[in-house]
Simulated scan of single mutants.
Amino acid sequence: MKAAVLVQAGQPLAIEDLVIDTPGPHEVLIRTAACGLCHSDLHFIDGAYPHAVPAVPGHEAAGIVEAVGSEVRTVKVGDAVVTCLSAFCGHCEFCVTGRMALCLGAETRRSRGAPSRMSRPDGTPVGQMLNLSGFAEQMLVHEHACTAIDPEMPLDRASLIGCAVTTGAGAVFNACKLVPGETVAVVGCGGVGLAAINAAKIAGAGRIIAADPLPEKRELAMKLGATDTVDALSDTATAEIVEMTKGGVDHAIEAVGRPSSAALAVGALRRGGTATVLGMMPLTEKVGLSALDLLAGKKLQGAFMGMNRFPVDMPRLVDFYLRGMLDLDTLIAERIPLERINDGFETMRGGHAARSVVVFAQ
């Protein structure tokens, strides 16, 4: 199979022919249909987040099940599926208390010393990134890293649900538990932020304020449900949000991964409001609340992957799309073949478009 391989951090991905293993117990072999380019991938490619190489990135994917190993019970050959990097064991403390996204169950990963799922033709092991490796024509994953969806769902749009939409919408539905009529500010209008805006509209938010420095991103936000926009880099951005909401928002969602954008989210809160940080920040950075923020009852939380329960959440998001409520078409800026993946990441570095999606020949 062809795959995009990270050979060395800071270098473009290399298109290589790799060999993929057959499914073991609880494993699913998927023919990849599409995989979105996520900023998280870029963190690994650029070396901001360390990872052993060579490895195949990509984690926002959808495809068709080609084969299943013994013990697989949740999907079958021919199913359309979406993958998710937050694989779950189903019986640890986090899983049984409904926080599946926090599961660290080792049984969803191959044990130390077991053969790699992927290798070069000469036998050199190639690592699987985030348990998925979606920038490849095939994926071999644990059955608890994918879920079946309605076969009517277009798979290029379904791929976005694997990360950006699950994270952004999940923050609204699962972490914020937004009540209809509450006000929301979203800082950063990339794929995750735009999905959060769309979800806030679905949830019945009274006012949705999109903060981004780029006019074209703010325009996309209005199309997806924002009622107001501000320039996130303006010196008056916080004051503008507080003024237009007469005291601040109930929920502020940070979807960039910078301390300054987290500070904007906290500053935009009303008394008792909650800031939810989704962006991947440099590992040495810290964000927090001042003593005055604490006196005002403000809260700060993370929401890894939208705190999803993806076997339930993803089919619901698919249903939202099929019923015309979730706008995934607007999120896709371009569809590209695997051979143009480095061009797609260059587009991402420019920051002016929403999502690029690699589409594989079927």
Results as ranks from 00 to 15, higher is better:
Ala3Val: 07
Val5Thr: 06
Gln8Pro: 03
Gln11Leu: 07
Val19Gly: 05
Gly24Val: 14
Pro25Val: 05
Val28Glu: 08
Ala34Ile: 09
Gly36Phe: 13
Pro50Arg: 13
Ala67Thr: 08
Val68Ser: 12
Glu71Met: 09
Val75Phe: 05
Val77Trp: 15
Gly78Cys: 04
Phe88Lys: 00
Phe88Arg: 03
Cys92Gly: 01
Thr97Asp: 06
Cys103Ile: 04
Ala106His: 04
Arg109Met: 09
Ser111Ile: 13
Gly113Ile: 14
Pro115Leu: 04
Ser119Asn: 07
Pro121Asn: 06
Leu130Asn: 02
Asn131Val: 04
Phe135Met: 00
Ser159Gln: 12
Cys163Ile: 07
Thr166Ala: 04
Ala171Phe: 07
Thr183Lys: 15
Val184Ser: 06
Gly188Ser: 15
Leu194Gln: 10
Ala211Val: 03
Lys217Pro: 02
Leu233Arg: 15
Asp235Tyr: 04
Thr236Met: 02
Ala239Ile: 06
Asp250Glu: 13
His251Glu: 09
Arg258Pro: 10
Ser260Ala: 13
Thr276Gln: 05
Met280Cys: 14
Met281Pro: 08
Pro282Asp: 12
Leu283Ser: 15
Gly288Met: 14
Asp293Tyr: 12
Leu295Cys: 09
Lys299Leu: 05
Met305Glu: 15
Val312Leu: 14
Asp313Pro: 04
Arg323His: 09
Gly324Met: 05
Gly324Ala: 07
Asp327Glu: 06
Thr330Ser: 04
Arg335Thr: 00
Arg335Lys: 08
Glu346Ile: 14
Ala361Ser: 08
